[in-house]
Design a binder for these strands. Sequence first.
DNA 1: TCTGCGATTCGCT
DNA 2: GCGAATCGCAGAC
Length: 196
Amino acid sequence: MTSYEPLEQSFYEQPTLELAPRLLGCLLVHETPQGITSGYIVETEAYRGALDRAAHSFNNRRTKRTEIMFHEPGHIYTYTMHRQVLLNVVSAAAGTPEAVLIRALEPKDGIPLMETRRPDRKPRELTNGPGKLCQAMGIEQIAHYGGNFTKPPLYITSGYTPEQVETGPRIGIPNAQEAKDFPWRYWVHGNRYVSK
DNA sequence: TCTGCGATTCGCT
DNA sequence: GCGAATCGCAGAC
């Protein structure tokens, strides 16, 4: 178990709807004093500020919480929901508030450490949901908000190329009217760690 | 293994 | 106050 070489800034400079599927198979890595944890990204969702009623930044709403989405792509956007932390990759050019939610991982390094952070869980229950993977990886909202995925301690590196990617409506946004049907959820076909 | 429902914190209005 | 990009548990099959 060693360090990896983070993907460069240029990787994030592609349209959100292209970045979201291209993140699949990439490796999310977190280096902490306790050790390294990592996992392959197997499920993502795109959120596109201006036109997307399901996004926090809908209608370009700029607040303390959504501020980071207006910055350059590659920044870290964390958000809390019912005591859970959710991890997002800021996408699109500065001034365009878009992001990709990381929904599920397939654990690679540091599985024993993940198990200490989420005791008494089956292997598959470690990272098969957006709040769960943050727990397993030790990701905290305050500490990581506004950071950058291009450098340690929390970064993304290349992994593998998925054989088949599937697309469908996003999860958990029933009040988003027309936006709830946008097929902006992407996952690796047949992967056991996909949340649904 | 899958589905449905209730808990409960924080940021925004 | 309100409502949410969720989780975990209970109960069915």
